[in-house]
């Protein structure tokens, strides 16, 4: 399952236009990667598409870091 992080990373780099080196598990989308609330919505949509899962709205709000996203995705694919 280690490739989940890599796939998440690729999506984050493309969507937020950030350097891949910055996309580590501890990185906060908003504080470290420059995302705003609309970016987060779009990012979650991209995760849903990539991993063919549905991330409910209340869970979306708890996804703050790259690690949060990876953990959630791993638990649901």
């Amino acid at each position: 399952m280690s490739d989940v992080l890599e796939r998440v990373k690729k999506i984050v780099v493309e969507n937020l236009d950030v350097d891949g080196d910055k996309v580590v598990e501890s990185a906060s989308f908003i504080d470290d990667l420059g995302a705003d609330s609309l970016d987060l919505v779009e990012l979650v949509m991209a995760f849903e598409e990539e991993f063919n899962i549905e991330i409910p709205d209340d869970v979306q709000e708890s996804i703050r870091t790259v690690g949060d996203a990876v953990t959630h995705i791993k638990a649901h694919i």
Partner: peptide, 10 residues
Amino acid sequence: PRKVSPFFIP
């Protein structure tokens, strides 16, 4: 509706 972009309106 879940596939509608948050950037659609702006």
